[in-house]
Write a protein that binds this DNA or RNA. Structure first.
Length: 499
RNA sequence: GGGCCCCUAGCUCAGUCGGUAGAGCAACGGACUUUUAAUCCGUGGGUCGUCGGUUCGAGCCCGACGGGGCCCA
């Protein structure tokens, strides 16, 4: 019988809990029952008895369940704190005259911190005024075989990420963050829906990746015996939707990029993309601001968001707009434009002691200079507008300024949160741009885009003028909370532990 | 890719000069009918990330590897 075998090389505390489980089963009780009595949640009980005076017996019987997170055993009156999933806590009391000596002793010896229990009894307040359930009986709902970490010392970063389930039990902020994300998602969908955008789901497994410049993850289909890619962006499929008459579409889903991971990059990340027929970069910028402001309001009830360290960030009102090349010129102290030559830009970059990749074209170098001198200083929300054409193959030319495209990047707290375009809709120009990209790919640029013939065929049927945007959901949560990306994702990728 | 730091009990961490392992909480035994990280008395718990080297002797020094973090690019 496997139940009788208790590995004696286990750490002491794990071994003792397994022995307790065996003892419970051996005397015919259940350690993992199929159901336990539960008449209300702890939250409901707290709400119903708000403001109850000290030392009151209500006469109301309830059965309540929760995880034991503190245990204070005394001789004839024991206290325990129960916690349920959202963090609501309630005290349970076990007195000798109510439960009798056998059950009291059993409570003391069987139940450990971390166990899930159901307690049946009367709702009272203690002599200190603590709302409590005074037990007549209790039942184990699930025996915990592992001790919880200390409540009052912060878990190490690594343990939080590797054992998020424990993190959620012990750390209020983890619970807050876990619930923040669905609130934001709901708000985003509500914002789109109220503007008559419809949500679509486009392929994540793709025959050909596209829509962004990034290295993809590759996989293999046995059924088709062909190489497939995890998508790096949904853009080209959403544009196909617009061709077909889904004039306002959005998708919120995962993208995958086979690149470095750090405090603001995860190999898989949630992304919003939206396309609005008969809109442009201005209409889509307004949409983006509304999405973010409405999400902030949904979470905090205000456009001023409070970060986890107490700092406040005001996302209200309209946001600053500035031209990319004006910001660069300001930053380097001389006039830089889309016409500035690659050699000139190199001279500036060298003055800034930047390392220059010889593969960079002028536009790319200009953007790198911007990142070097300006990006980190853009604390308040700002739309940076007008990007070089040679780094933006899916964007239409700027209607006024040659060499630029109608693309903006939204910066908040110094990092890029979203990007938006007046989309390129001329299929002939689009083909030229993708042919250029394919040539870069042939020369070994692993991030270059492919020549997607089906996408071009779709465009050739006629795409309405449109604006489009993309925004990282994880980054939106970072902007709303000030947290690192691994705190906004419940289960970020971590390398396996050694056995 | 380069540099720096960390890995010790279930958890969070100390560990001096290289001399054979410590604390708090948690656990175990006992006392306690109003506790709030209960308190008091007592006890146990360690492959010091892994492998190798130096040494009479390594948690500590050296090297490699694994895992994690920070900074730079």
């Amino acid at each position: 019988m496997s139940e009788e075998i208790i590995e004696d090389d286990l750490p002491e505390q794990l071994r003792i809990r397994r022995e307790k489980r065996s003892a419970i089963l051996a005397r015919g009780d259940e350690a993992y029952p199929v159901a336990v009595a539960r008449t209300a949640s702890l939250k409901e009980i707290r709400a119903r008895h708000l403001g109850l005076a000290i030392d009151v017996a209500t006469g109301i019987q309830e059965s309540l369940s929760g995880r034991v997170i503190f245990k204070r055993d005394t001789g004839k009156l024991c206290f325990a704190t129960l916690r349920e999933g959202d963090g609501t806590e309630l005290q349970a009391m076990f007195s000798l005259d109510k439960v009798g000596p056998d059950l009291l002793n059993q409570w003391k010896s069987d139940i450990d911190i971390g166990d899930l229990v159901s307690v049946t009894g009367e709702i009272i307040t203690s002599k200190r005024g603590e709302l409590s359930i005074l037990a007549d009986s209790y039942q184990l709902a699930a025996k915990s075989l592992r001790p919880l970490p200390v409540e009052h010392k912060p878990l190490s970063e690594e343990t939080r990420v590797r054992m998020r389930y424990v993190d959620l039990i012990v750390r209020p902020e983890a619970r807050f963050n876990a619930r923040l994300r669905p609130q934001v998602m709901q708000s985003l969908r509500q914002s789109f829906s109220s503007r008559e955008f419809i949500e679509v789901e486009t392929p994540m497994l793709q025959v050909m990746h596209g829509g962004a410049t990034a290295r993809p993850f590759k996989t293999h289909s046995n059924a088709y015996d062909m190489e497939l890619f995890l998508r790096i962006a949904p853009e080209l499929f959403l544009k196909r939707c617009v061709v077909g008459g889904l004039e306002r579409v959005f998708e919120i889903n995962r993208n995958f990029r086979n690149e470095g991971a750090d405090s603001s990059h995860s190999p898989e990340f949630a992304m919003i993309e939206a396309y609005q027929a008969y809109g442009d970069w201005d209409s889509i910028a307004l949409l983006t601001r509304n999405l973010i402001q409405e999400a902030a309001f949904a979470v905090y009830g205000s456009h001023v968001v409070t970060h986890h360290d107490g700092r406040e960030l005001d996302l209200g009102g309209t946001w600053r707009e500035a031209n990319l090349f004006d910001l660069i010129s300001e930053g380097v102290g001389e006039v830089v434009s889309a016409q500035t030559s690659l050699d000139e830009l190199k001279r500036i970059a060298l003055k800034l002691e930047m390392k220059i990749d010889p593969k960079w074209v002028a536009g790319k170098l200009a953007e790198e200079i911007f990142e070097q001198v300006t990006e980190g200083q853009l604390k308040d929300p700002i739309f940076v507008r007008g990007y070089p054409v040679d780094t933006s193959p899916l964007v239409r030319a700027h209607r006024l300024t040659p060499g630029l495209v109608e693309k903006w990047d939204l910066y908040i707290e110094g990092f890029e949160l979203a990007t938006g375009y007046s989309e390129l809709i001329d299929p002939v120009i689009q083909r030229d741009r993708l042919v250029e990209q394919a040539a870069l790919g042939a020369k070994g640029d692993v991030e270059a885009m492919n020549l997607d013939e089906d996408f071009l065929r779709a465009m050739e049927f006629g795409v309405p003028p449109m604006g489009g945007m993309g925004m990282g959901v994880d980054r939106l949560l970072m902007a709303l909370t000030g947290l690192g990306i691994r705190e906004t994702i419940l289960f970020p990728l971590v390398k396996p532990e050694e056995q």
